[in-house]
Design a binder for these strands. Structure first.
Length: 454
RNA sequence: GGACAGGUGGCAGAGAGGCGAUGCGUGGGACUGCAGAUCCCAUCUACUAGGGUUCAAAUCCCUACCUGUCCUCCA
């Protein structure tokens, strides 16, 4: 499989399946409930990790949780809560959302507060090498010492400075310098360090966690596109200064930001839709379909209409999958092998989930045109749809049925007999009763299919 | 102002020099006790504008305009 590397601006190929793919994705700052943007990014990387596993790699997938930060402290102050219990609450909330969204491929969540020793170690090393200086409010990183600062975001130094909106401390040696260790203020949570009590800066948190769990050489770095500068730039700079060269991560990848009414969804614009809200309104499969139906790196306009469309498409794929598994085996061939090749080809090509879904859709419509299919092809199609179910997560798992399947079958037997006697009122009431318990019954001629709704 | 992405049919969104992807929507039809589902047909001078390169450009080059992201916390 190949992925686009934003740092070098080229594709990198993954071939060696004996190697563990090491993957890092920037996690959330837990001071509020997650919104759609979080959900989108983590869905994309969840699917990617699962696809790599499916392809035969073992995957080590680390994500951080920023559970100490200015925003957490400020929010806690606002609502007169303790910062640590606030971040704990929203960490639980985040985990709950992830579980509900079927995102379960992360090997380990590294909390910032649990990584303080690693962070201190990193600052120490950097200090020894002369990258660190002290100001009254904290320890700072000397950006000018890293000549390559700016390569990731292609920001020339003048631009890093000319952002006139940033209020830069007069005391900093260079306006670009950022804080590694922030000294405590009264009432704030703090940790002990060689420089004084305080807490870690944001950028060094990620670089320390990466170094600790993945080392100075890993494969995939993922984040929302809005984190590229200054966060990832600084994170990369720190790792570079630790290692001495830039060969740290093979593929810097970005998940395109979600827009709503043409603007980025963000807290400051107050145009966010919470992850919880959408999970209440739509099935996990529909949500994942919506997110995976555009390229992971491109921006995405969100609308409720697109969610409805995704729901419909998911339902179509589900029906097709049911049909594949219940179809008679015969001589008919639809070119399943070609479809499968195309399907996996797209996924291997920079994880083009959109086109993979289109392929799944085309296969589905082919399936509905025939009454039977060869056993061989049924097997191939089954494999494709299993990937749709377990990797992309856009196909419902049919096993979770609330009523005993045996009960359903006997009710349908009864209904069939009633229909033969043309007692339609009675047969329809069985159908609607089942529908109320979430079982949809559909006739097509003599054949009856049933499945769980939602 | 700078950097980086884009501008494609009613909408969403691929493609990337020569066959009008795909889905949704809309109109018609088939099937059907009903409902649902599914299928078939139709919806077509689609590629922001203006120049250029070419036998051929939505696709390459230049210019302009427009939109978004980042340059402040952000997934």
């Amino acid at each position: 499989m190949k992925l686009w590397d934003e740092l070098k601006g080229n594709f990198v190929a993954f071939k060696d399946k004996s190697r563990t793919v090491k993957m890092y994705v920037c996690g959330p700052t837990v001071y509020d409930t997650p919104h759609l943007g979080h959900l989108k990014t983590y869905t994309v990387y969840d699917a990617l990790a699962k696809y790599l596993k499916f392809s035969g790699y073992s995957v080590l997938y680390i994500q951080n949780i920023t559970d100490i930060d200015d925003k957490i402290i400020n929010r806690a102050l606002e609502i007169r809560d303790d910062p640590m219990s606030l971040s704990e609450k929203y960490t639980k909330e985040y985990m709950d959302i992830m579980r509900k969204a079927g995102i379960d491929s992360v090997s380990f969540y590294a909390k910032a507060t649990r990584s303080v020793p690693d962070i201190i170690n990193q600052i120490r090393v950097l200090e020894r090498r002369g990258f660190v200086y002290r100001l009254p409010d904290g320890m700072y990183f000397r950006v000018w010492m890293d000549r390559n600062y700016g390569v990731l975001s292609r920001q020339v130094p003048e631009n890093q400075v000319s952002g006139k909106r940033a209020k830069v401390s007069e005391l900093k040696e260079d306006p670009r310098d950022f804080v590694l260790w922030k000294f405590r203020k009264p009432g704030e949570p703090y940790w002990k360090s060689p420089w004084g009590d305080g807490r870690p800066g944001w950028h060094v948190e990620d670089s320390a966690i990466i170094l600790r769990y993945l080392g100075t050489s890993f494969h995939i770095h993922g984040a929302g596109a809005d984190l590229k500068f200054p966060h990832n730039e600084s994170e990369l700079s720190l790792m570079r200064c630790m290692k001495g060269n830039s060969n740290i991560c093979k593929a810097w990848t970005y998940s395109g930001v979600i827009r709503i009414n043409g603007e980025k969804m963000s807290k400051s614009l107050n145009n966010g839709i919470s992850a919880r809200e959408i999970l209440d309104k739509y099935s996990v499969e529909a949500i994942r379909y919506a997110f995976l139906s555009s390229n992971y790196s491109s921006e995405m306009d969100f609308s409720w209409g697109m969610m409805d469309e995704a729901s419909q498409n998911v339902s179509y794929l589900n029906r097709a999958f049911t049909r594949i598994r219940t179809m008679k085996h015969g001589a008919v061939e639809i070119g399943a092998r070609n479809y499968a090749e195309t399907f996996f080809g797209y996924l291997d090509d920079n994880f083009n989930t959109r086109m993979a879904l289109v392929t799944l859709y085309e296969v589905s419509s082919e399936i509905f045109k025939h009454e039977e299919i060869s056993e061989d092809e049924a097997g191939i199609l089954n494999k494709m749809f299993m990937v749709g179910q377990e990797v992309l997560g856009v196909i419902r798992n049919h096993e979770s049925i609330s009523i005993e399947p045996g009960t359903v079958v006997s009710l349908l037997e009864l209904r069939k007999r009633l229909k033969q006697m043309k007692m339609y009122g009675e047969s329809d009431s069985i159908r609607s009763a089942l529908s109320e318990s979430g079982i949809i019954v559909e006739d097509s001629g003599e054949d009856v299919t049933w499945f769980k709704e939602r």
